[in-house]
């Protein structure tokens, strides 16, 4: 099982330039989605047929805080003029959607909130997601942002045979 992480406080724009470079939508994303895109890039870069649309790969995202870091930005915008571009990131599953769009994954996408980081609980849910017979692999993300500079971000690429 492939596992990656992004150190807390890393310069995400610099990582984007080094490791992605050709996906300018990145700049409109909140921190959570940026972390999801970068973690996925580290998991799947170099895969054969990388951007062929596929339904057999799920994207499962987990956190404690959900999207509260971005909710704070939206609340701030409400004082002045509520921002639709911030509002669309106030859902914990948007990061899964961004990963799907970038990588053309048309399989299951799900977002879960747990009381704490618990690898056993995460992988119990991951194994259960494979009850969908179409799902052959999954990008699994734990991305928990306290704010735009502090996070815990790690990812796994899980194949059905590995469980």
């Amino acid at each position: 099982m492939r596992q990656v992480n992004i150190p807390c406080g890393a310069d995400l724009v610099q990582l984007y330039r080094q490791e992605v470079g050709d996906y300018p939508k990145f700049f409109k994303m909140d921190t959570l989605s940026r972390l999801g895109i970068l973690l996925t890039e580290r998991l799947v870069a170099g895969e054969p047929e990388r951007f062929q649309p596929r339904e057999d790969r799920a994207v499962l995202v987990f956190s404690r805080e959900g999207c509260l870091a971005n909710d704070r930005h939206y609340v701030a915008s409400m004082e002045d003029f509520p921002s639709p571009s911030l509002f669309v990131y106030t859902l914990p599953n948007i990061v899964a959607g961004e990963i799907s769009i970038r990588n053309k994954y048309a399989g299951e996408t799900s977002a879960f909130v747990l009381e704490k980081y618990d690898e056993e609980a995460i992988f119990t849910l991951v194994r259960q997601a494979f009850l969908d017979p179409v799902t052959k692999s999954a990008v699994v993300i734990w991305a928990d942002c306290a704010d735009d500079t502090q996070w815990n971000a790690r990812g796994w690429l899980v194949e059905r045979e590995e469980l």
Binding site: E65, G66, N93, A111, F112, V113, L114, E115
Partner: peptide, 27 residues
């Protein structure tokens, strides 16, 4: 604390559920 995790924990415990709660927040 407006996190979904906090609310779920309170609801699960008030019900008497012994196992950790899971929140599904899929739009």
């Amino acid at each position: 604390d407006v996190s979904l995790a906090y609310s779920a924990g309170n609801i699960a415990r008030a019900l008497g559920v012994q196992n950790p709660p899971i929140v599904v927040s899929n739009a």
